[in-house]
Computed example of a mutant assay.
Amino acid sequence: MPLKRNLHNHRKHDHYKIKRIFWLLLLMLLILGISIAGVAYHNVYKATNIVYKKTNAHKERNAGKLIDNKKPISILLLGTDTGALGRKYKGRTDTMIIMSINPKKQKTVMMSLPRDMKVNLSGYSEYSPAKINAAYTYGGTKESINTVQKYLKVPIDYYVLVNMGGLKRSIDQAGGVTVTSPLTFSYEGDHFIKGKKYHLYGDDALKFSRMRYSDPQGDYGRQLRQRLILTSLLKKSFSYRTFLSSSFLKSISNQAQTDLNRSQMLGLSLNYRKSGNHVVSDYVQGVGKEIGGQDFEVVSKSELIKSSNIIRNNLGLTRY
C-alpha cells in the first residue's frame, strides 16, 4: 500500500478540495452576508430564530466567549441527503466536515470524515459498531457531535446542519446555474452531453450533481460535478440581494439548523471573514473492510492522531 500513502497528500488537496460541504458553507455565507449588510433586519431576525436549535451535546469550551474574543473556533458541518427529490425521512449525514477557523492566521481548515467510518456510538452501544453517519439517525446532532469529539479529540464549538432542499431552493432563488458537463450520461430522466453547456434549476441541478455509479471516476467524478454546480451558485451568491426575500429566508430556514445565534453569526461575519482567504481542505483516510456483513472505512489510530493535530494546530491547541 505504499503508493496509496504517497498519493495521500496529493489526493487531499485535489479530489477533496471542493467536497460537498461547500453548499453547506453557501447557506452559512448567505446568512452571514445578509447580517453584515445590515439590510432586511426583520427578515434576518425571523430566519435566524427559526434556524436556531440548541443541542445537548457536551461542549468542551465556552464557545460564545471564543467569538467575543475573536479566538479560533470549530464548526461541525453536516449535510443530510433529504429534503428534495421526494426524500422526507430523517436520513443520515452523508457529509461530515470539521471546519476550524483561525481569524489571527486568517486560515480555515476543513477536515472531511468518511461517512462509512467505523465507530462505536457512545449513546447507542446496542447499534455499535456503526458507521459514523448513523450517529445522526440514532441520536441527532447531539450524538454526531459527541462521536466526532470522541474520535477526533477536538472540541466542537458549533454545528450547521443543512439538507438537499436547502441547496435546491438556493439554486431556484438564484435563477438557476450554468454548467458544462464533463461527461455524457443519463440520470433519472435527464440526459447530459460532454462539453455541452446547460442552465439548470433546482431538481435538474441535483440530478446533475448526484449521479455516481455511471461515472468512471465514481465518487470523485460526482464531487467534480458538485463543484461545477456550487461554483456557479457561489458567483451569484456574492450579490446578497438575490437572497433577500422573506419567502426565501423562511423556506431556507426550514431546511437548516444551527446552534449559532444571531449575534454569533454577526460576530463571525464581522471578524472571521478574512479566514476564508486561505482554505485548506483535508480528509481522514480509511481502509475499506467488511465487518459483520457491512462495509466500513476503518481509520487507524495514527491517522486519527494526524488528522486531529492538523485541526488542533489551527485552533491553537496543543498536539494530541
Rank of each mutant, 00 (worst) to 15 (best):
L7C: 07
H8Q: 13
H10E: 05
K19M: 10
L25A: 04
I34M: 13
I36E: 08
Y41D: 07
A47S: 10
K53W: 03
N56T: 01
K59T: 08
R61P: 05
K70C: 04
I75A: 12
G79S: 10
L85S: 09
G86F: 06
R87C: 06
T93E: 03
D94F: 14
M110A: 11
P114I: 11
G123N: 10
G123P: 02
K131V: 03
T137G: 02
G140K: 06
T141H: 04
Q149S: 05
I156Q: 13
V160Y: 01
V160Q: 01
K168E: 12
T184D: 08
S186M: 08
D190R: 14
H191F: 15
F192A: 10
I193Y: 14
K194L: 08
K197N: 10
Y198M: 08
Y198H: 10
F208A: 02
S209I: 09
R210T: 03
M211C: 08
S214V: 01
S214Y: 01
G221P: 14
L224P: 07
Q226N: 12
L228R: 08
T231D: 15
K236D: 04
F238Q: 07
S245C: 06
S245W: 10
S247L: 02
D259N: 03
D259S: 00
S263V: 12
M265H: 05
S269G: 14
N271R: 11
Y272M: 07
R273S: 05
S275V: 06
G276F: 15
H278Y: 13
Q285R: 11
V287D: 08
G293Y: 09
E297M: 11
S300R: 07
S302G: 11
S302K: 13
K306F: 12
S308N: 05
I311C: 13
L317T: 07
